[in-house]
C-alpha cells in the first residue's frame, strides 16, 4: 500500500472509532423522542457517564465495571427525566436543562471527591481492540471495520437492532404510536407511561455509555467538560437522521468524519488556525440543521406530555 492508501485507511478507522459516542447518544435520544419524550440533557448525562465510568474503572481496576456504572447513572438520569415529566407532568425542556446542569456539576464533583486535586492525573488503560477472527484478515476492510474495540461493534449492532425493533415488531409499532399520538395509543390499550419510562431509562443508559467511551478510548483520564458539545450535536444529529435508527447511523458517520477531519488538518498543519478547525463540527451542525428541518418529520408529540384526563380547551 502506498502512503496515500494508508492515510485513507487510517482516516476510515478513526471515523469508525469516533462514531461510537454519536451513535450511542443519538440513538438514545431517538428512543425517547419516538415515545414523545424529548431529552435535552445529553451533554450532562454524557459528562456524568464519562466521570463515573472513569472513576469506576480507576477504583475497581476494571473497564467493564466503569461502563456498567456509567450506564447505571445514565439510566438514573433517564428515570428522573421520566418521573418529572411523565408522572409529575412538568415541562420536558426545563427538566432536561436542569438535568444537564446537574450532570455538569456532578461530573466534576464526583471526580474531585474521589481523586481530589493532583498534579498528575490518574490514568486508566484504554479499551483494547478486539480483532474479529477471520473477518479481520480481509485486506483494508478488515483493518477498518473488524479490528476495533467492542463498543464499535456494539454501536453498529445496536443501530441494526433498533431498526429491526422499530419497524419490524409490533412492540416497535406501539413505541412509535406513543410518540405520534399518545391518546390514540392509550385508547388502544398501550401503556403510554410505561413506554416513556422504558425509553427514557434505556436512552439515558446509552448516553451514559457514550460518555464513558471518551475517557476509555480517547484520553484515559477525565477532564472537565471533556464531552465538548457532542451531547448537543447528538440532538442535532437525531433531527438530521429523521428520528430513524438507520439514518442516524449515517448521520453519525458524517459528524464523526467532520471531527476526524478537523483533527487531521490540525495535525497536518496547513496553516489554518486550529481554533477555526475546532469550530468545524458546530458549523456543520448549523448547516445540517438548516437543511434537515426542511424535509425531516419529527414525532408529532415530541416534547409534549400526555395527561389522559386533560380536557382540551375547544
Amino acid at each position: 500500500m502506498g502512503q496515500f492508501e494508508v492515510q485513507i485507511v487510517n482516516f476510515a478507522r478513526l471515523v469508525m472509532l469516533a462514531l461510537v459516542p454519536y451513535v450511542l447518544a443519538s440513538q438514545g435520544t431517538m428512543l425517547g423522542g419516538r415515545t414523545g419524550l424529548f431529552n435535552v440533557a445529553q451533554e450532562g448525562i454524557m459528562l456524568v457517564g464519562a466521570s463515573v465510568g472513569f472513576l469506576g474503572a480507576y477504583l475497581y481496576d476494571s473497564l467493564f465495571y466503569g461502563l456498567l456504572l456509567a450506564m447505571l447513572v445514565g439510566g438514573l438520569f433517564g428515570l428522573a427525566l421520566a418521573y418529572f415529566t411523565t408522572t409529575l407532568k412538568m415541562n420536558q425542556f426545563v427538566i432536561g436543562l436542569a438535568l444537564f446542569f446537574f450532570g455538569v456539576g456532578l461530573s466534576t464533583l464526583f471526580y474531585k471527591f474521589v481523586v481530589g486535586v493532583t498534579l498528575q492525573p490518574p490514568l486508566i488503560p484504554t479499551l483494547q481492540n478486539v480483532p474479529i477472527p477471520g473477518l479481520s484478515q480481509i485486506p483494508v476492510l478488515g483493518d477498518i471495520f473488524f479490528t476495533q474495540n467492542w463498543l464499535v461493534y456494539f454501536a453498529v449492532l445496536l443501530s441494526l437492532f433498533l431498526y429491526y425493533l422499530l419497524y419490524q415488531t409490533s412492540f416497535g409499532l406501539e413505541l412509535r404510536a406513543v410518540g405520534e399520538n399518545p391518546k390514540a395509543a392509550d385508547s388502544l390499550g398501550v401503556n403510554v407511561s410505561r413506554m416513556r419510562y422504558g425509553t427514557a431509562i434505556v436512552g439515558g443508559m446509552l448516553m451514559g455509555l457514550a460518555g464513558a467511551y471518551l475517557p476509555m478510548v480517547y484520553t484515559g483520564t477525565f477532564t472537565e467538560g471533556m464531552v465538548q458539545g457532542r451531547g448537543w450535536i447528538a440532538i442535532a444529529l437525531t433531527f438530521f437522521g429523521g428520528w430513524s435508527p438507520h439514518l442516524i447511523f449515517l448521520g453519525s458517520l458524517f459528524f464523526a468524519g467532520v471531527e476526524v477531519l478537523a483533527l487531521r488538518v490540525q495535525i497536518g498543519g496547513f496553516g489554518i488556525p486550529y481554533q477555526f478547525l475546532l469550530t468545524l463540527p458546530y458549523i456543520a451542525t448549523i448547516f445540517v440543521m438548516m437543511f434537515a428541518f426542511r424535509w425531516v418529520r419529527a414525532p408529532a408529540f415530541l416534547g409534549q406530555n400526555y395527561d389522559r384526563e386533560k380536557r382540551t380547551l375547544a
Partner: peptide, 8 residues
C-alpha cells in the same frame, strides 16, 4: 376527534 396516527 379521531385517535389515529397519520403516518401509519
Amino acid at each position: 376527534h379521531f385517535l389515529q396516527i397519520d403516518n401509519f
